[in-house]
Computed example of a mutant assay.
Amino acid sequence: MKTAHDLVTAAKALIREVSLDDAEHAIREADVLLDVREADEFAAGHLPGALHISRGMLEFKLAGTPELSSRDLKVVLYCKTGGRAALAAKALLDMGYIHVQSLAGGFDAWAAAGHPLARPSLPAFD
């Protein structure tokens, strides 16, 4: 029986991971930056300009959103450390997307390197 680690390792062998050093360029060149973490993780902080679609809903949201349906979109994905993003990238390749990259090390590596983060502001209830 395969473990989650086995599935991530297999996915990483088939996808393109972009290094942290090359991430800013890849993100600038991308048509869409996707955060595939859960909603609470996204709300706690995310990469500026990221669109949130949790890993569990990814295929459904892409299929149901005309602006994201073009298979030649340049897509960069990330999650917390890279596992979910690798699985998501593999799913996008399986769906026929051509230009898919996953951020190696994910959000944690981005934040640890001191790159900018976005945090939604909450309304004041004074």
Score class of each variant (00 low, 15 high):
residue 88 A to D: 02
residue 24 E to Q: 12
residue 64 G to L: 04
residue 92 L to F: 06
residue 53 I to L: 12
residue 107 F to T: 04
residue 82 G to H: 04
residue 10 A to P: 02
residue 57 M to E: 12
residue 104 A to Y: 06
residue 27 I to P: 02
residue 93 L to P: 02
residue 108 D to C: 00
residue 84 R to Y: 04
residue 64 G to R: 14
residue 84 R to L: 11
residue 38 E to P: 03
residue 104 A to F: 02
residue 33 L to D: 01
residue 12 K to M: 11
residue 117 L to M: 15
residue 66 P to I: 06
residue 9 T to Q: 13
residue 89 A to W: 03
residue 122 L to E: 15
residue 119 R to N: 11
residue 17 E to T: 10
residue 78 Y to A: 10
residue 86 A to D: 07
residue 83 G to L: 08
residue 32 V to L: 05
residue 59 E to H: 09
residue 18 V to T: 14
residue 57 M to T: 11
residue 110 W to M: 11
residue 37 R to G: 01
residue 87 L to N: 03
residue 122 L to V: 13
residue 106 G to R: 05
residue 46 H to W: 05
residue 120 P to E: 15
residue 22 D to A: 15
residue 110 W to L: 10
residue 15 I to C: 03
residue 12 K to S: 11
residue 106 G to W: 01
residue 114 G to E: 05
residue 63 A to S: 14
residue 59 E to V: 12
residue 111 A to K: 15
residue 13 A to G: 01
residue 118 A to R: 12
residue 19 S to I: 03
residue 16 R to M: 01
residue 36 V to M: 02
residue 123 P to E: 12
residue 38 E to S: 03
residue 23 A to E: 04
residue 19 S to A: 11
residue 72 D to Q: 13
residue 29 E to P: 00
residue 52 H to M: 13
residue 60 F to A: 13
residue 107 F to V: 03
residue 80 K to R: 15
residue 77 L to N: 05
residue 84 R to Q: 10
residue 16 R to T: 15
residue 119 R to T: 15
residue 62 L to I: 09
residue 73 L to Y: 10
residue 70 S to Q: 13
residue 107 F to N: 02
residue 19 S to Y: 01
residue 31 D to Q: 09
residue 45 G to N: 10
residue 24 E to C: 00
residue 114 G to T: 10
residue 51 L to G: 00
residue 103 L to I: 09
residue 75 V to F: 04
residue 100 V to M: 10
residue 74 K to M: 04
residue 19 S to L: 02
residue 42 F to V: 08
residue 84 R to E: 02
residue 74 K to F: 05
residue 117 L to W: 07
residue 34 L to M: 06
residue 65 T to E: 08
residue 77 L to A: 08
residue 55 R to M: 10
residue 63 A to P: 01
residue 64 G to Q: 14
residue 14 L to N: 13
residue 57 M to K: 13
residue 34 L to P: 06
residue 5 H to P: 00
residue 34 L to Y: 01
residue 5 H to C: 00
residue 108 D to W: 00
residue 30 A to N: 10
residue 112 A to C: 08
residue 76 V to D: 06
residue 75 V to Q: 01
residue 66 P to M: 02
residue 24 E to Y: 00
residue 25 H to C: 00
residue 31 D to F: 10
